[in-house]
Design a protein around this nucleic acid. Sequence first.
DNA 1: AAAGGTAGTGACTAATTACTCACAAAAGCG
DNA 2: CGCTTTTGTGAGTAATTAGTCACTACCTTT
Lengths: 198, 198
Amino acid sequence: MPRTKLSADARRAATVETVIGLAAATNPADITTAQIAAQMDVTQGALFRHFADKQAIWAAVMDWTATTLLARFDAVTGVTPIERLRAMFATHIDFVVTHPGVPRILFGELQRDGDALGKMSVRALMAAYRERVTNLLTEAKAQSLIAETVDIPAAATMFLGMVQGLAMQAMAASDFTTMPAVSGRLFDLFCDGLGVAK
Amino acid sequence: MPRTKLSADARRAATVETVIGLAAATNPADITTAQIAAQMDVTQGALFRHFADKQAIWAAVMDWTATTLLARFDAVTGVTPIERLRAMFATHIDFVVTHPGVPRILFGELQRDGDALGKMSVRALMAAYRERVTNLLTEAKAQSLIAETVDIPAAATMFLGMVQGLAMQAMAASDFTTMPAVSGRLFDLFCDGLGVAK
DNA sequence: AAAGGTAGTGACTAATTACTCACAAAAGCG
DNA sequence: CGCTTTTGTGAGTAATTAGTCACTACCTTT
């Protein structure tokens, strides 16, 4: 029983936060509405006052993730596009380390069949992400900061792959704390591939 | 009702194949024992004669995957270690394209809590994979085929990340057919990072 | 061909889980 | 304060699903 009632907006936000917290230690596919409610000190029924169904909860989580992550990307600063790319990479890693539940949920949504809502969100997020990376790479090439010959789509795929691979390897090891240490060296290697001057 | 009874071994093998087939189009977390049985023209009860529980089915799938994939890696040929690395990459992509259910199952197992059987298998597979990549990179460096300065652990992480990222992006797009086309260009970029002479 | 072991059946169960709804109580507004 | 709106309760329910088991039918071996 909640000491204080929350407004609908606040309750929804709290739900998203709770779900992400739970996902840090639990397989998202195994998270039940009962578990979420219990964690929030609320009954199960209360959840369905704010979300039409369980899917809507996942959709809200994905929404929050996309909004927050993209906002942080857009807040990134740096003199050269390469510096901004590096900052973006670090920002993303930091986000994942502080919210380990997020990649788990993301991967879980990706598993859904057909065109499920959650999957569409992930797709949109990845597309927006890719676009930002591509733009920075294009800018870098225009400024001759990277080799003229760089295959930009391939480089964008590799950039995304670095983050995703790192996240997967962290999940496999059940340890996200080592990510920041590896990430710098990984980005250096990426720069070598682009022919960035040092 | 099955036209012919199968031996226990054959039935287990058929089950693994069926599950991988189902996972190509269905979220592994949503695959039920009833579905598996139906697909095999067998009753649900029959499955539990060959597997102690559902977990055991996933474990068998992971076993098959690890064995098959590693065997293909070890069968790879090429004059230089770099050529072998490229062949390994292509082999993996080819495997994923012909068995799209496999990465989905793998990602699903990775989601499990704690030290679930399936997760341990994935972990072992990834470790064995990483070891092979590391060995080839070390060999390449010894033969001066790649820059002396290459950060081998980072390069191994990047190699795994390329495959995993590619698989994830294919899952997001629900389209595995474009993978081979991208993979060659991706590997070229990887070589640039290593400083491979062309 | 008879026997014995093995694969498969089919009907069952116990547990879980998303979702509902009539009612209660808190919040906020004039 | 008194009234309305909105949030939360608690006790459901219907559906799904992994796993069981006594029995049957097939296959192989001698």
